[in-house]
Simulated assay, not measured.
Amino acid sequence: MKVDRPVIGGPCWAELGTSDLEAARRFYGHLFGWRGETDPRQEAGGYTVAHLGDAAVAALSPLYQESQPVAWNVSFLVADADATAGKAEATGATVLVGPMDVFDMGRFAVVLDPGGAAFQLWQARAFPGAGLFNVPGALGWVELMTRAPERAVVFYRALFGWSVDASEHYTQWGLDGADFGGMVAMDEKFPPEVPAHWLPYFAVADVDAAAATATEAEGTVLMEPTSVPEGPRIAVLRDPQGAMFGVHRAADYQD
């Protein structure tokens, strides 16, 4: 990820909805060295911010609705959550939640893109988003998994003004020349019950060691550590409660 701070239109936060908050705290603390701080306000519902040092890097939260899946969610920074949610609807998306205020921290909405992938909009007030990117334990890349790649290009270009760098193998998203994510077309290798989704990748010092650590902590390796031709070394993992996420070698994005 060449984006190293929250910028309008770019990824600014990753948030886990989990069925076992304490187990998730232990797992990710062991894997990434995160220190969790739970918001003491009753209205926060146990929302827990993960830190590396003093920097907020991600969040863990209980499931707030029975229909909510155990999954990682990606937030994109916007100047106006209401206007962007309206634009998303006009471009073929569905607004699932909000827009609504989160204390004095900001305003957010949950959107389902035309291909069925959920993501969040974040209008920052007191909380700007993650304080670190691209270092071990911090967000380093975001990837859209979709069965409607052509429609996704049209939608996200219109909504956020993203640039699209596409080859026959992979499509990358960017802002002002800085790439921050990509897109994978879901084919027959993906079971039909797996929905379209956004997958966060967290930077690690050693992908193979991270995969081994996740396994020791009762996680699962879904994609073994792999070196992408002319790209990073990556792996896709699943935590003990079932949430999928990726890891990539931090050194591969230090250019």
Rank of each mutant, 00 (worst) to 15 (best):
M1I: 05
D4M: 12
P6Y: 15
I8K: 06
T18S: 11
T18Q: 00
S19N: 05
E22N: 12
A24V: 11
A24F: 04
Y28R: 01
L31F: 10
R35D: 14
R35T: 14
E37S: 08
D39P: 06
D39K: 02
E43H: 10
E43N: 06
E43L: 03
Y47H: 13
Y47R: 04
T48R: 00
T48P: 09
L52P: 13
L52Q: 12
G53I: 06
Y64Q: 08
Y64I: 01
Y64W: 09
E66N: 11
Q68F: 05
Q68H: 05
V70T: 15
W72T: 02
W72I: 02
N73E: 14
V74W: 00
A79Y: 00
D82F: 01
D82E: 15
T84R: 11
T84D: 09
K87D: 14
A90G: 15
V95Y: 03
V95N: 03
V97Q: 14
G98I: 07
P99C: 09
M100N: 07
M100K: 09
V102Q: 13
D104W: 05
G106V: 06
R107Y: 12
R107E: 12
F108R: 01
V111T: 10
G116F: 13
A117Q: 08
A118R: 05
A124V: 07
A126R: 14
A126I: 06
F127M: 07
G129I: 05
F133L: 15
G140M: 02
V142W: 00
M145H: 11
P149A: 01
E150S: 13
R151C: 04
R157N: 07
A158L: 07
A158K: 13
L159A: 03
F160L: 08
F160H: 04
V164F: 11
D165S: 12
D165Y: 15
S167I: 04
E168A: 15
T171N: 05
Q172N: 12
W173Y: 15
G181N: 11
G182D: 07
K189H: 12
V194L: 11
P195T: 02
A196M: 01
A196G: 13
W198R: 00
A203E: 11
A203F: 03
V204I: 08
E216T: 14
E218I: 00
T220M: 06
T220S: 11
P225T: 13
T226I: 07
P232T: 07
I234P: 11
A235W: 01
A235V: 06
R238L: 01
D239T: 08
D239M: 09
M244N: 10
G246V: 03
D252S: 15
Q254A: 14
